Amino acid sequence: MLKFFRKIRKELIAEKKVSNYLLYAIGEIVLVVIGILIALAINNANEDSIKNKKEQAYLVGLKSEFGISKLKLEELIRVNKVSYEAAQDIVHLMDNEENPSEKELSKLFIDAFASDIFFNPNNSLLFEMINSGSLKDISNDTLRIRLTNWVATLDDITNQEKFLGEQRTNIVNWFRTAGYSIRTILDYTGMSSQLGIQKENEPTSNLSALKSIAFENNILLFIITSQSTENEHYDPLMKSLDEILSLLDSEIKE
């Protein structure tokens, strides 16, 4: 095609047809520009296709991660609820005139204070995207902001869980003092045999703790902190998690 136009150009120059030559030159420029635009369009289309495939891969991966994190958070909320409800039962026992059995108190103690409450979400892909600058590949502005805020929210959750852990430690430490026995709790809940420890013939009673105002104060602080963790941190976190999953679903192309 170019050879054909060059031949025409030479003939026009030879015949000194200036006006026709100018028209030809303009036409040749237009063809070159059109060719460049077509090449750029094809290149942009290829780049958009690659970018879209990359974004979709990220979206699918994030959906999987946040789906697992939701299951973990649901289980954590359940365990935390069991924990503070058992602590509430201990307070109720302190209000009763009749002492409960050593076995009942020991079981409630394990249910209330044996489990650490710690949210460990699956964020490997999200952190990789943030560290590599790939978060910008998420085209949905709202989703991108939600993902950024999610990381900041986790720091707040960690601080709250640390405070809750301190309240739990205060209560456990109470049974390390003279007159109380952690081993009694292990014996009556069957955990001694699991640990390979022989039961005591005459276990020390922990029932006197139910008469202690200081012990009650520690449990009440634990209950307050546990419920605050659920209502002011875990519940909003679950809402945020559901919103992120909803946005991911809306952006993923089946």
Rank of each mutant, 00 (worst) to 15 (best):
L147E: 05
N140Y: 00
S212W: 02
D89G: 09
K136G: 04
I68H: 05
L195M: 15
N231E: 13
G196F: 05
M191K: 09
L154D: 05
I171G: 02
L237G: 01
E98H: 07
D156Q: 12
S19I: 07
N20H: 08
I244R: 00
L147I: 13
S192W: 03
F175G: 00
E85L: 06
S19W: 09
R144C: 05
S208C: 08
K16Q: 10
R146A: 15
R144A: 05
L93F: 13
I145H: 07
N218W: 05
L76V: 04
S205I: 09
G67E: 05
N217M: 15
K253Q: 15
T169K: 09
K51V: 12
E216H: 07
V33F: 13
N52L: 15
N46A: 11
A152I: 11
E202S: 09
R144S: 02
F215K: 02
L135S: 03
F109M: 07
S106T: 03
T229S: 12
L186F: 14
N20R: 10
I130A: 02
L245E: 06
I90V: 14
I36H: 06
L108W: 11
R78D: 08
D156Y: 13
V91M: 09
V151L: 14
N122S: 14
L73W: 04
E232N: 08
Q167Y: 11
R176G: 09
S228T: 04
Y180R: 10
L220K: 06
N170I: 07
S69W: 00
A209Q: 04
G133T: 07
N218H: 07
H233C: 03
P203A: 06
G61R: 08
L210H: 00
F109R: 00
D235P: 03
